[in-house]
């Protein structure tokens, strides 16, 4: 154990602050939002930060994605062939831009990722209505940079997985018991900054565009 560590811990241990037991610590903002309300709130928030929302059904979401790709003239898109949703897309390659799989370590193809990749498609673990957020736990099939480096991020969200608050997500999805992944993310819109004169500019370092395909 380092000397610094022991000194710091020992110094802290010589003080015993008066314990304050606040019951307010567990206060939860409660909203009685039904599913429709949650969808409305989510959409409202997302649109407010310039995310695009595409409503779809369980049957036509893939076609909707094909339309988005055409509209945005995407030449290629990262899609995992391992996820159920990815498989659907790989089954309709003729309607889609060149689908690419992120199946080797970034060091091997960093330049293509940074310079030649138009879009990344990812699934999500759900969404949060209060803040308009997507929940992402990147995996080896859908790695971290898929939703960050390409200029367009297309994400699929099942409205059955739309929670009210982040607190609710942590609890109901059992994050602590499950164990945290290497990286867990909440994504609430495309990358932006207000560092120049408080003026919003989009696409600073992350995606310039975020498209959320909402499956009802």
């Amino acid at each position: 154990m380092s000397k610094a560590r022991n000194n710091i811990i020992n110094r802290l241990r010589t003080t015993k602050p008066e314990p304050c037991h606040f019951s307010e610590r567990d206060h939860l903002s409660r909203f009685n939002w039904d599913k429709e309300e949650r969808i409305n709130r989510f959409v409202e928030r997302m649109v407010a930060v310039r995310a695009e929302i595409i409503h779809a059904s369980k049957d036509d979401w893939a076609e909707k994605i094909a339309e988005i790709c055409q509209e945005k003239r995407l030449k290629n898109m990262l899609v995992s062939p391992e996820t159920a949703q990815g498989k659907v897309l790989y089954n309709m390659v003729d309607q889609l831009p060149d689908l690419q799989s992120y199946d080797h370590e970034i060091e091997d193809w960093k330049s293509e990722m940074f310079n030649q990749t138009d879009a990344g498609f990812t699934t999500t673990l759900g969404g949060i209505a209060e803040t308009g957020s997507l929940i992402l736990w990147p995996t080896k099939h859908e790695p971290r940079l898929m939703s960050l480096v390409p200029p367009v991020h297309i994400a699929l969200l099942d409205t059955n997985q739309l929670y009210t608050t982040f607190s609710e997500v942590v609890k109901e999805q059992g994050w602590v018991d499950k164990g945290m992944p290497t990286n867990a993310l909440l994504v609430s819109g495309p990358s932006k900054s207000a560092d120049i004169e408080q003026t919003l500019a989009y696409g600073v370092h992350g995606p310039k565009e975020l498209v959320v395909v909402l499956i009802s």
């Binding site: 928030r45 930060v49 209060e130 803040t131 308009g132 957020s133 982040f166 945290m180 992944p181 290497t182 990286n183 867990a184 993310l185 909440l186 994504v187 609430s188 819109g189 495309p190 990358s191 932006k192 992350g206």
Partner: peptide, 13 residues
Amino acid sequence: PITTYVNMISSPR
């Protein structure tokens, strides 16, 4: 209400 990204890191690769 939230920042664009909330980045929670629990381990290296």
